[in-house]
Design a protein around this nucleic acid. Structure first.
Length: 281
DNA sequence: AGCTCATGGCGAG
DNA sequence: TCGCCCTGAGCTG
């Protein structure tokens, strides 16, 4: 279940398990069979992530370009694990370990230069050391699209998904409907720094957690919750529930094709946000 | 058994 | 902007 931190964890997982090894490659489902046959037995060189794209490099300049989409999964399992072959698009295995890919939006065999082009075409990714946030500012500061839509635009903020969108807007008190170009530079800088911190944390622990200690349900005198994504959040998927900060009912509407969540009191209409003194958790 | 929904993005219109 | 694709979990019956 993929925002950018998940893909970066998978890239690391692929590299640590398989880099430098000759691997078995198969497509039990058959939909990637030709490429799998071509790659079977070759050396997996490395894996990298950019935004929500996973690029797995093999010898001879072959790259498997994976995008999980909304429902795709890549799971690391012991190589002998029984599995339903009808949905197993790709299995990479070596030394008793396997990586099983199911339900990806796509899984394609491309060349090294094509892989470089994927990276170049991506917006800056807060989880990559080579990210240049000024590219995001250049786009955000020139568009009248709502900031809540721009935060989901992978050519502006690569790897940011529906949870990080809702949570960073909340943390900065930004009305998601405000035109992106109305957001001050200082607030953008704070949002970028916050994304770096929140996404690095999520990468490290494997869970999105955006709530400050002062605003946990316990600290606010409310019963603890269990969220479906396994982390602690202010507004994501909390429509109709009281805001953890002010108690106002969290609202929801579809923006950029996805359910957006926000607190109409903490993010009042027209608010262009404030910088955080202490970005990230 | 059969919905509906999900941390996404594409192509048609 | 809408319909569609892929899989699986969590409901409803």
């Amino acid at each position: 279940m993929p925002e950018g931190h998940v893909i970066h964890r998978l890239a690391t997982g692929m590299t640590t398990r398989f880099a430098g090894r000759s691997v078995r490659v198969a497509s039990p489902q058959g939909r990637f069979a030709d490429a799998a046959a071509l790659l079977d037995g070759s050396v997996l060189v490395d894996a990298q992530a950019v935004g929500k794209h996973l690029l797995v490099g093999f010898e001879d300049d072959h790259v498997v370009w994976i995008h999980l989409g909304l429902i795709g999964r890549l799971a690391f399992v012991p190589a002998g694990t029984p599995s339903n072959p009808s949905t197993l698009r790709l299995r990479v295995s070596a030394d008793g370990q396997a990586a099983d890919l199911r339900g990806p939006q796509w899984c394609r065999l491309i060349t090294g230069p094509e892989s470089d082009a994927v990276v170049a075409a991506s917006g800056p990714d807060p989880l990559r050391d080579d990210a240049d946030p000024s590219r995001a500012w250049a786009k955000l500061s020139r568009t009248s699209r709502p900031v809540g839509a721009v935060l989901m635009d992978q050519s502006v903020f690569a790897g940011v998904g529906n949870i990080f969108r809702a949570e960073t807007l909340f943390r900065h008190g930004i009305d998601p409907h405000v035109a992106a170009r109305q957001v001050p530079r200082a607030v953008f800088d704070s949002v970028w720094a916050d994304l770096v911190g929140l996404m690095r944390y999520a990468y490290r622990v494997g869970r999105i957690d955006t709530v400050d200690e002062d605003h946990t349900p316990q600290a606010m005198g409310r019963p603890p919750r269990e969220d479906p994504h396994g982390g602690e959040v202010y507004v994501y998927r909390r429509a109709g529930m009281p805001c953890l900060v002010c108690g106002t009912e969290v609202r929801t509407e579809v923006m950029a094709g996805r359910n957006l969540y926000w607190c109409p009191s903490c993010q009042p209409s027209g608010a262009t946000g404030v910088s955080l003194a202490t970005p990230s958790v």
